[in-house]
Amino acid sequence: MGHVYDNLYDLFNQNFAVSARKKYCRIALGVLYHPRCLVHDDFYCVVFIHKRDLDKCDPPFLNRFEKHLIDIEALIHPRHKSVAHDLHMWLKTLLPKNLGKHFPLLQHLFVDYRQDQICNLVIETFEQLNIAIDDEEADKRHQDVINHCQRKLLRTASFDLPLVLSLQPNFEHQNLIDHYYEVHESVSFVKSIETALDTETNIIHRIIDTYTQNFHTIDGLPESVEEIKLSTFKTELELTNKIKQHYQSSRKIRLLLIRVDYHDEHQHILSLKHVLLNEHVQTSNRGVWLIFH
């Protein structure tokens, strides 16, 4: 976004021209075109920057703003924070103490593990269990929330989890290993698709992470599922038209699978997200799933 910030120099400096009691700001669009844009009286500008990118920002740019450090813990309720803390402590007990510092990590045991993800999982669990965050019942059902989150995490566990747990044999870890295999025996990609298609309402969006390659064939897909690759689209307009066609078409296709090669196409993910969110039709019984290879 740095190139955009440079064009908004006067805006960030609040260097406005006043005409007929209205404020105008010069916006630099290219070298020669600098139009004046009307600024709303209640206009307020907030710029979000990752902490890791602060060193790349020019001091004059940073000095234009009040600065506040925001993380996920500052945005969640204390009850959510308490459950998330207990979950983190439980997860740490799964890591062996006698192996290297860099393997295994929780990122190896649970796909796409992040601390923020745990907080989001806790918030989602409160909603799914219909627990009011300000109700006294929330404290009584603390363990119910943790158990539900643990079951969810086991569904995202990698093949490394039972192996790591077997290095620390005890009753609890053996139960987790047994539960892991019970869960994953009943979880398959085709079954997930069949379950989604059984509902006549809107198909919930899903993101699937897989260790397979982008060119691998997906066997057993129903006729109502279409599979495409992000690499087949040359422009964002082509992708947008395809998503529109999916939701508006009279064909029997209800689920569109978009396969993404993360290493080669990660720079297009934000654009893909933008298209999917803007073209999504709430009243449609169709859906789109992303598969990251």
Rank of each mutant, 00 (worst) to 15 (best):
S186H: 09
Q245Y: 13
A132L: 13
K140P: 00
H148W: 09
F233P: 10
R141P: 03
V164T: 10
E172H: 03
L129Y: 05
C119S: 09
N170W: 06
Q213W: 04
E238P: 06
E200P: 02
K140V: 04
S188I: 10
S158G: 11
T235S: 15
I207D: 14
F126Q: 04
I193L: 04
Y211I: 06
L153H: 05
F126Y: 15
I208P: 02
K244C: 02
I193P: 06
T199R: 07
S231K: 09
K244Y: 01
I243W: 12
K242A: 12
F171K: 10
P222W: 02
E227N: 12
E124M: 00
L221M: 08
N175I: 06
I146R: 14
S158Q: 08
E185D: 03
D219F: 09
S158N: 10
E223D: 15
I208F: 14
L197W: 01
Q128G: 01
I208M: 11
I131K: 00
N147P: 01
A132K: 09
T212A: 10
T199F: 07
T199H: 07
L163C: 03
H142W: 07
K242D: 01
I204P: 00
H142Q: 08
D144T: 07
Q143H: 13
I177C: 04
H142D: 05
D135S: 15
E127C: 03
V145R: 03
P222E: 04
Q174Y: 03
L237E: 13
Q213V: 02
L165F: 12
E185F: 01
V190L: 09
L167W: 13
G220F: 07
T201F: 10
P169Q: 10
L237P: 00
D219Y: 10
H179R: 14
L153P: 04
Q213M: 07
Q174N: 08
F189Y: 09
P169D: 12
Q150F: 07
L153T: 04
I133H: 03
C149Q: 06
T240N: 06
L161V: 06
D209W: 14
E124D: 10
Q143T: 14
E194H: 12
S224G: 02
V122T: 10
Q143Y: 11
E127F: 05
I133A: 06
L230F: 15
F126V: 01
I207S: 12
E172W: 00
S188K: 08
I207L: 12
Q174C: 01
I193W: 02
I204G: 00
L237C: 03
I218C: 05
N130F: 08
V225I: 04
Q150Y: 04
I123C: 10
E226I: 04
H216E: 15
I123L: 13
L176F: 02
V190I: 15
K191V: 09
